[in-house]
């Protein structure tokens, strides 16, 4: 039953969000590392790929201001992505919990009237 209602997609979605959040954490940790370049994934493309079982492809973000030490991490950009990923994960986990709840109701619901 769980296969039919997009649980697999939700799982891939959450896995990809966790991966992206990790890249954001790495960008923030390296905000003062000379020569470090901001890394990210193209979320829409990689999500489509992930549904077909392909591993995500990490790219360097273009068009950011490069500081004197060769670092191009923008803390504001990373803060935005950090919040966005957390909120998306929040939505997905709520949806998934709803699916699991439905399944649990189907399992437990008829317990009282088995006679």
């Amino acid at each position: 039953m769980l296969d039919g209602v997009g649980v697999n997609s939700l799982e891939q979605y959450m896995t990809l969000l966790a991966d992206r959040q990790k890249l954001v954490a790495a960008n923030i940790a390296n905000a003062d590392t000379p020569g470090f370049k901001t890394k990210d994934i193209d979320f829409q493309t990689e999500f489509t790929n992930a549904l077909q079982g392909t591993q995500p492809n990490v790219t360097e973000v273009q068009g950011l201001v490069v500081k004197n030490d060769g670092n191009n991490v923008s803390l504001d950009r990373e803060a935005r992505l950090l919040a966005e990923n957390a909120l998306r994960f929040n939505i997905a986990s709520n949806l998934l919990r709803g699916q699991i709840h439905t399944l649990r109701m189907a399992i437990e619901g008829g317990g009282g009237s088995s006679a």
Partner: peptide, 28 residues
Amino acid sequence: GASRGYGANVAAMSAIKDMIQRSIDLFR
């Protein structure tokens, strides 16, 4: 700058911790 950087890492860790907690809550 060091203090701000430290704070940014704390914020990232807190967001990730929240995501882990949400994953755990799926079992409830």
